[in-house]
């Protein structure tokens, strides 16, 4: 595999939805230590709907597909997950607009665009977008995107690069254990969140790892 086609992307998102649904309760438990415990449920609600509406999604190209996903996710993921994950997908969609296949460097650009789009959504609501170290899902997503960018520059193969990116996400999530939450719902408990990873960052690590494992089979 050296390119991702629209069909491959649909497969990846389908795997992603399965992982999210399988981990619904697990992600809620990760969130209840410091957050309000609804992360798994909110996220799964949107991705269950995505699977339900699957045949109505737009499969014209990767951009169109991800954009149609973003509309469902934005509408059906509960709480803050709708705007956050919806804008991530929207940003990625814009970056892959009109493309029927992408290589590693375009995948890296797409992931960077997703990070940026989420940060802009946060900025519009709170005056400042989350950076690495704020104990949000950006702590896993940004290192994964950076890892893809570095791999693309080094001319690495697609699947090994994705594996590295998943590892970067897991490591990024692990680091959030050591810091107090400042943004998001867990932001109200501050220091009491030390010792627990951010549920969003942790979730990104689990999702990326699962995608790479299943693609490698």
């Amino acid at each position: 595999m050296d390119k991702i086609t629209t069909k491959d992307m649909a497969n990846i998102i389908d795997i992603m939805a399965d992982i999210i649904i399988e981990n619904e309760v697990h992600f809620c438990k990760m969130d209840s230590a410091a957050g309000d415990g609804d992360f798994g449920m909110s996220l799964a609600k949107g991705f269950k709907q995505l699977k339900k509406d699957w045949d109505e999604l737009d499969f014209d190209d990767i951009g169109a597909f991800l954009k149609s996903c973003s509309m469902v996710i934005m509408e059906y993921c509960g709480g803050a997950s709708g705007p956050i994950w919806g804008s991530g997908f929207r940003g990625a969609a814009k970056s892959a607009k009109g493309k029927e296949e992408i290589g590693l460097s375009e995948l890296a650009e797409m992931m960077q665009a997703a990070v940026e789009s989420i940060q802009k959504t946060g900025e519009r609501s709170f005056g400042v977008g989350a950076k690495v170290g704020d104990k949000t899902l950006i702590d896993a997503l940004a290192p994964a995107a950076d890892s893809l960018t570095a791999s693309a520059e080094a001319g690495e193969e697609l699947l090994p690069a994705m594996k590295k990116a998943a590892q970067a996400a897991v490591q990024g999530a692990e680091k959030t254990k050591e810091i107090p939450a400042r943004l998001g719902r867990a932001g109200t408990v501050g220091d009491r969140s030390i010792g627990h990873p951010d549920a969003g960052a942790y979730g990104v690590g689990v999702i990326f790892t699962g995608i790479v494992e299943r693609l490698s089979k």
């Binding site: 509960g78 709480g79 803050a80 709708g82 705007p83 959504t121 946060g122 519009r124 609501s125 719902r185």
Partner: peptide, 8 residues
């Protein structure tokens, strides 16, 4: 956070 983001 959720309300702020969705309303904004």
């Amino acid at each position: 956070s959720g309300d702020c983001m969705n309303f904004n």
